[in-house]
Amino acid sequence: MLISDGVIGLRPIEVADAAAHLAAQGREPVRPAAGPGTPNMVAEFERCVAEWADDGPHKTFAVVDVPARALAGTLDITLEPEFLAKRQADIRYGIYAPWSGRGVDGRTVVLACRYLARQDSADEAVLRIDPADTAAIALARHLGFHYHRSSSEPKGRLDWFIQAV
């Protein structure tokens, strides 16, 4: 395990996680020959694994329920994307329904910040949240993130919350 609090752990995503990811979303694995426009989740997971191998600025983690040894979600950290300042990291996470509402979201964000601090790869973590997602905003505030600004994105407005790591 890369980093854990004993309940939840973060580790680099693996291609083998694709099947559990799709099952958690109620979807079947898609083969590469599935047809035009059909997402190939295995290829996406292979790309994420390659980004780890290249030690690039984007890292996708498996969020793992440590006692159950089960995939509970995914976490993406992008270091210094073009829309952020130097030494800021964008954090995005998705927790699967069976783990939602059980504190996994908060533990995941805390572990992401610990990872950033241990790696000395960022000074601040940024959560960009849809303003309609009141639960995510409440969680950000509970974890000590403070509102920074709002931005208009192609998919709508996002509120930015920042915390030092």
Rank of each mutant, 00 (worst) to 15 (best):
Ser152His: 09
His21Arg: 10
Trp52Tyr: 06
Lys59Gln: 15
Ala50Cys: 07
Gln119Glu: 14
Ile95His: 04
Leu71Asn: 11
Pro39Met: 07
Ile162Glu: 10
Arg141Ile: 14
Ala164Lys: 10
Asp54Met: 12
Phe83Ile: 04
Ala53Val: 05
Gln88Gly: 00
Gly144Lys: 09
Pro32Met: 02
Val165Ile: 05
Gln88Thr: 04
Phe61Cys: 10
Lys86Tyr: 14
His148Phe: 04
Asp55Leu: 05
Asp65Val: 11
Ala23Asn: 13
Arg118Gly: 15
Pro32Gln: 04
Phe61Ile: 06
Ala136Gly: 06
Gly73Tyr: 01
Arg87Gln: 12
Ser152Tyr: 04
Lys59Ile: 03
Pro154Val: 09
Phe161Trp: 13
Ile77Tyr: 05
Ala53Thr: 10
Val64Asp: 13
His142Val: 06
Ser100Ala: 14
Ser100Pro: 00
Val49Trp: 03
Ala125Phe: 01
Tyr96Val: 08
Val126Asp: 06
Leu139Cys: 04
Gly73His: 03
Val30Asp: 07
Glu28Leu: 11
Val42Tyr: 00
Ala16Leu: 09
Ala53Gly: 10
Val7Thr: 15
Phe45Val: 08
Ser150His: 12
Asp55Arg: 11
Ser150Glu: 14
Leu127Met: 06
Phe145Tyr: 11
Leu79Tyr: 02
Glu46Arg: 12
Val104Leu: 03
Arg11Tyr: 02
Arg102Trp: 00
Ala70Ile: 06
Arg141Lys: 14
Ala89Asn: 04
Ala43Gln: 11
Ser151Glu: 12
Pro39Gln: 09
Ala136Gln: 05
Asp105Ser: 14
Leu158Trp: 02
Ala72Met: 06
Asn40Ile: 11
Glu80Ser: 13
Thr78Arg: 08
Ala138Arg: 13
